[in-house]
Design a binder for these strands. Structure first.
Length: 397
DNA sequence: TCTGGGGTCCTAGGACCC
DNA sequence: TCTGGGGTCCTAGGACCC
């Protein structure tokens, strides 16, 4: 029978996901260091990790560390398909699945003991199934809380399984370095290091007030709770994205306002197209900038009505960019991004027929142009207000 | 070795309303 | 004329995650 307080939460995490898909699909890559992505490392195999390669590392450094690595371009469609197949296995295991990203999820198997056996057996079967049916290695951590299950999978990687029994939790947790805690990144770790605090156990002995004064109220309380393995968050099914965005890195050379506008139009088009495909609308447009010194800034504007139409969202993004141009010209720009937040479901406002909804008509025309001529033609058309082969309504300013 | 693209959550001040 | 507390929304920034 179900005993509350059992270790019943699984954190399942595919190992070196993109690189493992590449090794699965090309046997020549197996056992060799593999790097996915050229400019920066998107993912790398464990053979490459053993040589010091890390994701997000610059490509040049990665090749210097590991000259015999095979560098392959990313194949997002293959990763998406593999992810879907794995999530099907997750949902075949338990209905209580909370996806965290393309390659990891929490599974609550608390109610399944009678049906499917104890969590350890379920985890063993899950790993075998993912291996046999999708051909990928996956690590599973099992614990009483989400947080600890994730820590456990991190410790067990790669291709591992680790169950943390409820009566051994602190014994497991306290010797670990603070960086293992979910939410402790470089900044927090550095602040703790200044106080000579390196392990989770040392954090636990600090006392909440000290942590709050060191890290602020939110982070301090959060960290204090985690260090004592207090994490009441349940596994949540069906969480929806709350924003969608796209961004594009630019070289350090100067960019004219017209160039930036072209990039911006392409980004807004990409985002709104995905929003329409997902049936979402949004109200808040956020412009993200990164300057030549790699500091960042954001500018946002909230519309009165949610929409997925390119027109109003592009107009808002353009207004934000125009307002930021003096700063951009003074400081130089190396990245431009757009995201739409405050996402709503679209169901409340069924799409109007074209003859009553010029915005939807415009979007349909834009999609048609892209499909026929490609996105670069589309960007030119949007910028010039010209017709590359189709009647194109003008974009609002 | 100059650093991609996609997200989440938290904080804090100001506007505005009751 | 001066003084409250509480709540929500918007904007901007920052830390963190994969």
């Amino acid at each position: 029978m179900f005993v509350s307080g059992d270790a019943t939460i699984l954190h399942a995490d595919l190992d070196a996901f993109y690189a493992s898909v590449e090794q699965r699909d090309d046997p020549r890559l197996r056992g060799r260091p593999v790097i996915v992505g050229g400019g920066v490392v998107l993912a790398c195999s464990y053979e490459a990790k053993a040589r010091g390669v890390r994701s997000a590392m610059g490509g040049r450094q990665a090749r210097r560390l590991c000259p015999d690595a095979v560098v392959v371009p990313p194949r997002m469609a293959a990763y998406t398909a593999a992810s879907r197949a794995v999530f099907e296995i997750f949902r075949g295991t338990t209905p209580l699945v909370e996806g965290l990203s393309i390659d990891e999820a929490f599974l609550d198997v608390g109610g399944l003991r009678r049906l499917a056996g104890p969590p350890l057996d379920i985890a063993v079967r899950l790993r075998r199934e993912v291996g046999e049916r999708v051909g990928l290695p996956i690590t599973v951590g099992v614990a009483r809380t989400k947080f600890l299950a994730k820590v456990a999978s991190g410790v067990a990687k790669p291709d591992g399984l680790l169950v943390v029994a409820p009566d051994r939790e602190l014994e497991f947790l306290h010797p670990l370095p603070v960086e293992r805690l979910w939410g402790v990144g470089p900044v927090t770790a550095a602040k703790l290091r200044e106080r000579r605090i390196r392990t989770v156990g040392q954090v636990a002995r600090l006392g909440e007030a000290t942590l709050v004064s060191l890290l602020g109220a939110g982070a301090g309380r959060h960290l204090h709770a985690l260090a004592h393995n207090r994490d009441p968050r349940p596994v949540q099914v069906g969480r929806r994205r709350s924003s969608m965005g796209a961004q594009h890195a630019l070289g350090r050379e100067p960019h004219s306002p017209a160039d930036l506008d072209a990039v911006l139009a392409g980004l807004v088009d990409r985002v709104t197209r995905r929003m329409r495909a997902a049936g979402r609308t949004g109200r808040t447009v956020m412009l993200r900038l990164r300057f030549a010194d790699y500091t960042r800034a954001t500018r946002s504007h909230t519309l009165v009505k949610p929409t997925a139409q390119t027109g109003p969202l592009l107009a808002a993004a353009r207004a934000l960019l125009r307002a930021a141009l003096p700063e951009v010209e003074a400081r130089g720009i190396t990245l431009i991004g757009v995201s739409v937040g405050n996402l709503d479901d679209r169901h409340e406002q069924p799409p109007l027929p074209f003859d009553r909804d010029p915005g939807a008509e415009l979007d349909a025309a834009v999609d048609a142009v892209r499909d026929r001529f490609g996105s670069s033609a589309l960007t030119r058309a949007v910028l010039l207000g010209r017709d590359p082969g189709l009647e194109m309504p003008r974009l609002p300013d």
